[in-house]
């Protein structure tokens, strides 16, 4: 016990005490993981709050009339008069048509992949669908402008204007003429269909794969054909999951920006027709936000963004809830 050994001892003791207090670094680790978790959870709130705060002037200037349906909406950066209805309508109609077209196709794919296709084909087909989902949106847009619009949409639009367009009532939705370039709400809806089919069909396939084998065996034992088993047993069983998949696709359609902006024609016309150019909520933001000069103009765009955020948030929450409920109901039995 010499006096000189005292300083190292206190150092060691100090280090040990710090180590103990921090559980040898585990305290810090715990704080870091919890902090990251809280950060991720708060991110959504942060996004919502920022957009809400930054659209305050637009909200107080235009009130609810900003969102109200009008036949001749004005979007005038010079007079600072803004109404969002043309964009809301464009988003709703393109998403609705895309969903109508995508549901039968995707449910068919989901059924085919989960129930019918040979097992060696299941994986490559699933991959191809995922590749379709992975192609960047701008590439869809470029292909849309130069290939899909002239070769598919324009002839189809002309045909629809000459047939459905002549009917009373729904004819208004198909009133022509479609622009020679093919750029129209119909084009946007068709591109959206292509883009959301992979999403919906992948989730539908997973929902069908999660249905217990006993359900199928019971139906076959009663003498049902494959299709009867699928349509009368499996579809009702997995219905909420399929609905979840569809809503997930809706969420993607509502928020899709680049491809839609490139093919929809970007025009604030009053017409309701699918065959006319239009605008969506996301495409007006994409086109004008970087160049918005007046405060109200950019705030009006942020308000549209806020609306888009809230709607997709609700849609995604609903979808997750539905898919999660199916996944939760089935694990006990499993599929041998």
């Amino acid at each position: 016990m010499k006096a000189q050994t005292v300083p190292p001892n206190t150092m060691q003791r100090l280090r040990r005490n710090i180590g103990k207090a921090l559980h040898h670094g585990d305290r810090i680790w715990q704080w870091l993981t919890i902090g990251a978790g809280i950060g991720v959870a708060l991110l959504l709130l942060g996004i919502g709050w920022m957009l809400w705060r930054d659209s305050a002037d637009a909200r107080s200037a235009f009130g609810l009339g900003f969102l109200a349906p009008t036949a001749d909406a004005s979007w005038n950066p010079v007079l600072d008069k803004f109404e969002a209805w043309p964009f809301i309508y464009g988003t709703l109609i393109t998403s609705a048509v895309a969903l109508l077209l995508a549901i039968p196709i995707s449910v068919g794919i989901g059924i085919f992949l989960a129930e019918l296709c040979p097992s060696w084909l299941r994986l490559p087909l699933g991959w191809m669908l995922e590749l379709l989902a992975a192609i960047p949106s701008v590439v869809f847009g470029l292909w849309g402008i130069f290939v899909f619009l002239p070769e598919v949409v324009e002839p189809l639009g002309t045909f629809l204007a000459g047939t459905l367009g002549l009917l009373p009532g729904i004819g208004a939705l198909f009133a022509g003429p479609i622009p020679a370039s093919g750029a129209s709400r119909l084009a946007a809806a068709l591109i959206l269909t292509i883009m959301i089919v992979p999403t919906i069909s992948a989730v539908t396939r997973d929902v069908f794969l999660a249905i217990p084998r006993s359900q199928r065996e019971a139906a076959y034992a009663l003498g049902a054909t494959e299709w009867e088993t699928i349509s009368q047993v499996l579809v009702p069983y997995g219905l909420s999951g399929v609905l979840g998949a569809v809503i997930l696709g809706l969420g993607r359609a509502l928020g899709e920006t680049m491809a839609v902006t490139m093919v929809i024609g970007n025009s604030i016309g009053g017409a309701v027709s699918l065959l006319r150019p239009g605008y969506t909520m996301s495409s007006i933001i994409a086109n004008e936000f970087a160049e918005a000069v007046s405060r109200l103009h950019s705030q009006a765009l942020i308000e549209i963004g806020f609306l888009l955020f809230i709607v997709t948030l609700l849609v995604n929450m609903a979808a997750r809830f539905l898919v999660w409920r199916v996944a939760r109901r089935t694990p006990q039995e499993g599929r041998a």
Binding site: G37, A41, L43, L44, D54, G251, F309
Partner: peptide
């Protein structure tokens, strides 16, 4: 834990243009 998993799933569905607006602000 539930909040993290849930908000991760929901965050995946937020339109990318909205994320752009957020970062702008």
């Amino acid at each position: 834990g539930i909040a993290v998993r849930f908000s991760t799933d929901v965050l995946a569905g937020v339109p990318s243009i909205v994320i752009g607006l957020f970062l702008y602000a």
